[in-house]
Design a protein around this nucleic acid. Structure first.
Lengths: 142, 142
DNA sequence: TGCACTTTTATTGTATACAATTTAATTTAC
DNA sequence: GTAAATTAAATTGTATACAATAAAAGTGCA
């Protein structure tokens, strides 16, 4: 009868995406625990390792997160001494998040994480590239 | 200098996966709101539309969720009248979750969602198949 | 039988996520 | 030049997620 039922979990594209994302974040956990970072804190630091300084709105655009999520994450990172939070002189509405010296140093401890994670995922380079491009294509559409 | 920095967000496979999953769930939201379901409630119902009855542990294995997440979701679905929760006679440790008549009827309202979502995602059939298979390959590894 | 061990679910505590609202600062319209 | 509109961040409320623990039920073996 219903040989193909669109409402079966296994016929959904969304579900493996959702499950995969969760499982990968879970895989990161032991590596990130060594740095006392959560995944959200980690990707926030990744942006700051690259850009040094950014307001909350732009950070949110990079990370696909809003201020409701970022505000507590940034306060946490500030309390750990990895970032500073200051209102911009030119426009006090903007909160400028800057990486500290201690935040920069954290990068040295994080540098091995991508390699370790790559070993966990173990897709071929072609498959990885393929997946990467499909995901970014989808992100552009969404 | 650092032409290729593994700690750049854009060089990570994990990040587009994480972002894509979130954005897709967000895309579902307006469709699911019409049914007064959250995404987690929706995928739970999808399993029950297919299997009618399942204990929490097996449900968790299908959905990659644990009892800490499922218990409140199932209580909510029970309060809406879509499922019942009963201890199994044979082994009282197991909680048997069963779909109700009202739960079955909900499927008629949900039937159009996958098509609407497919229109939002708009990858080609080949790309969709490709992505689907890469994600399931990865899930098997993880 | 009885007691250690395992299994299943529920609870607790922490950290996201995000919609909706609020607050404060800035810009636009007129 | 000021009121209205817009913008950025923070706050509030709801719903996940998940680790760790607790509680209850079942199993196995001396």
């Amino acid at each position: 009868m219903d040989k193909y039922d669109p409402l079966k979990l296994e016929n959904q594209l969304c579900f493996p995406l959702y499950a995969c994302a969760k499982e990968i974040v879970r895989k990161y956990k032991p590596f990130l625990e060594e740095l006392d970072l959560t995944y959200t804190q980690y990707i926030t630091m990744m942006v700051l390792w690259e850009r040094k300084e950014m307001n909350v709105k732009t950070l949110g655009e990079w990370l696909y997160l809003d201020s409701g999520t970022l505000t507590p994450v940034l306060k946490k990172l500030e309390s750990k001494g990895y970032v500073t939070r200051k209102r911009q002189k030119k426009d006090e509405r903007n909160l400028c998040v800057s990486i500290t010296e201690k935040g920069e140093e954290l990068k040295n401890s994080a540098i091995e994480i991508p390699g370790k994670m790559g070993a966990c995922i173990s897709l071929s380079p072609d498959e990885t590239k393929n997946l990467y491009e499909l995901l970014y294509k989808m992100l552009r559409i969404l």
